[in-house]
């Protein structure tokens, strides 16, 4: 009484377990911290991108009669010691902050991935040389390194970007290398090799897609760090040159008048706090969403 049939297509035409396309976004938004992070990041990005549209005044325009004014309908966040509208300056400062952060982190990411994969997948001697380089660069404290470079080259936005790239790339490269090392003995890499695939193909089309997600999450957490470095250096007068506004230089300008008009310092500090929290929340929630261990439990 055989009820079973010898066939080989049983179950093969079953539907594919497919998740909705934007399932990760749904998961992200379900987490209050993630939703808040995404909201804050969007707020910062939109206000920076649209700085020219949203600014009520030209950020360079002086209005000496109205200097150090408190918040009012005319000047939402008051004016600084030269009578410039603080709100407009903060919007434009956001542009500078995001520009520095995105360019330097983006370049570091690309460089880090390339070097890390080479170190991890390439021959042993190359790995050793690259590791030595990464570790020696990482041994410098960022701020000291930045001060040293700025003394030689002179302060500018490009210098800051260069310094950040130099100092963050080794971190990314190391992570990419370690991930590559653990991936390279996985069965799917062996399977590719058994089909005849060579190193370049394996790195670009099979390792890279698996490395990007965790590194992007790290990037989103590093963005506020870079913004703080830029603000810190600008606060010390070693960053952006006036009259271009930066959150750091706004803080510095306000610092001298903190007793009578604390508005400037508060207005300069809040966007920094929002950005830091926003990107950190977003990064951490993204990690929760994409962490395979968390995902396993459905």
């Amino acid at each position: 009484m055989t009820t079973t049939t010898p066939e080989d297509t049983a179950g093969a035409d079953a539907p594919i377990k497919r998740e909705p396309r934007l399932a990760w976004l749904w998961q992200l938004l379900r987490n209050p911290l993630g939703a808040l992070g995404l909201f804050l990041v969007l707020l910062i990005v939109i206000s920076a991108l649209g700085a020219d549209v949203f600014s009520p005044y030209d950020y360079k325009a002086l209005d000496v009669k109205n200097r150090l004014a408190g918040p009012s309908w005319a000047h939402l966040l008051g004016t600084d010691n030269l009578g410039r509208d603080t709100f407009s300056r903060i919007l434009h400062g956001g542009q500078v902050a995001l520009y520095v952060a995105l360019v330097s982190i983006g370049v570091s990411l690309v460089l880090g991935l390339a070097l890390g994969m080479l170190a991890g997948y390439g021959p042993r001697w190359l790995d050793n040389i690259l590791l030595l380089c990464f570790d020696s660069v990482r041994a410098f404290p960022v701020i000291m390194f930045a001060l040293a470079v700025i003394t030689v080259v002179g302060p500018s936005l490009e210098t800051i970007i260069g310094v950040v790239i130099m100092t963050t790339t080794p971190g990314y490269a190391r992570i990419a290398r370690n991930a590559t090392l653990s991936l390279k003995n996985n069965e799917f890499i062996l399977a590719e090799r058994s089909l005849g695939a060579r190193g370049k193909r394996i790195m670009i089309s099979h390792l890279l897609p698996n490395l990007i997600a965790p590194l992007l999450i790290l990037c989103s957490m590093d963005i506020p760090v870079v913004i703080t470095i830029e603000a810190g250096l600008s606060f010390l007068g070693l960053g952006v040159k006036p009259p271009t506004p930066s959150w750091g230089s706004i803080l510095y300008d306000g610092y001298s008048f903190i007793r009578n008009t604390p508005w400037i310092v508060i207005a300069g500090g809040i966007p920094l706090i929002i950005t830091t929290l926003g990107f950190t929340f977003l990064g951490e929630s993204l990690r929760d969403v994409f962490d395979p261990k968390m995902k396993k439990d459905r």
Partner: peptide, 14 residues
């Protein structure tokens, strides 16, 4: 010994 083995046709429901 047989080369054709029995199976359960279809698959687990959603």
């Amino acid at each position: 010994t047989r080369k054709d083995l029995p199976t359960i046709s279809g698959s687990v429901p959603d």
